[in-house]
Design a protein around this nucleic acid. Structure first.
Lengths: 175, 175
DNA sequence: TATTGTTATACTCTATAACTATA
DNA sequence: TATAGTTATAGAGTATAACAATA
């Protein structure tokens, strides 16, 4: 019985997200933004890992985002970082602790508000962040070559439009 | 060192995550595909949850993907589902078990190959899948209104280009 | 009372290694 | 030996509740 499917050959197709599914009907999945966003994000995250893992173990996208935001906004508070990156305060704590343990980030108790802290990058953290950018940007550029000359800008524009609630102005967000 | 930023400059990128972070400089993050893909995916996944949670508890994107693929390819094997969706065989097992426990999916031992199984949706599973589609597609459409008339197709096209290794033909998955 | 940082907990997703039973 | 399904485990990300100190 069974064998509703003809010819199950052992045609092992190379790994990757969608390539090995050539003869499988994916149904509506390729038409769902959620599914395709997940696949794309997995791919880019793998690229991030390849770009960063060797040289900066333990640094993943969230850690990089924290470094970037704190570097651009010295003295920022954990609470603000959490809302800016969409991370809960509770989940931010161990990330900040790890970065502080590395000596890349300092937590300074606020003098006017006994509850608050001010976050700053150490000189080491600043140079490491530069190093991370120098690794990440080329890899993103390499991936972007799959999208054609204006594809990357178009993708970012669409993603901004998607994540921008409504009355925002995403038109001024490009470099 | 480096930039020595003057207090709180309103730099080039207001858009991004939320409007409450308007005065925070997000640096290069809004220009990174990885960061924006993550933000977009979180948003769409929240939408998925809102669309599905009430009525089908426990059904998340991976479960839906499995149902969709098995429905379109009756008799498919777990191994094929795993590679098609980018999930490891090991991690697929509990997902299939849950769906089987719900009575939505059957695991039939293959008669010619004692190691293999054939996956099929039960009649209940098929109707439930129809129900899920009827909930998910409108919510995706609603999100897509932020992207303009051709924005959604453009986004899907770019995501396909990004996740397609190189000389592949993404048309095999198109409807 | 409300907020800030924190702790603790639980659940999901992901990544490996290793086992069984078949082939 | 190789494969299919499975088990077990560990790690990361996410989501809540609750707490102490402070406002």
């Amino acid at each position: 019985m069974d064998e509703a499917r003809p010819s199950r050959r052992k045609s092992i197709t190379p790994p990757g997200v969608t390539e090995s599914t050539a003869q499988i009907d994916m149904g509506v999945l390729p038409h769902l933004m959620g599914y395709m966003l997940r696949q794309a994000q997995l791919l880019v995250y793998q690229d991030f890992h390849h770009a960063v893992a060797a040289g900066s173990p333990g640094i993943r996208p969230p850690q990089f985002s924290i470094l970037e935001v704190v570097n651009r906004n010295p003295g920022l508070r954990p609470s603000d970082v959490a809302t800016a990156l969409g991370i809960s305060r509770a989940n931010l704590v161990p990330l900040l602790t790890d970065l502080a343990t590395l000596g890349w980030l300092r937590r300074v108790d606020d003098e006017t508000d006994g509850r608050a802290q001010s976050l700053h990058l150490t000189p080491l953290g600043a140079t490491q962040l530069e190093d991370l950018r120098a690794k990440i940007l080329p890899h993103e550029d390499r991936l972007a070559t799959r999208l054609g000359p204006v594809g990357r800008d178009m993708l970012l524009l669409l993603l901004h439009a998607l994540t921008t609630p409504d009355g925002e102005t995403p038109s001024s967000g490009q470099k």
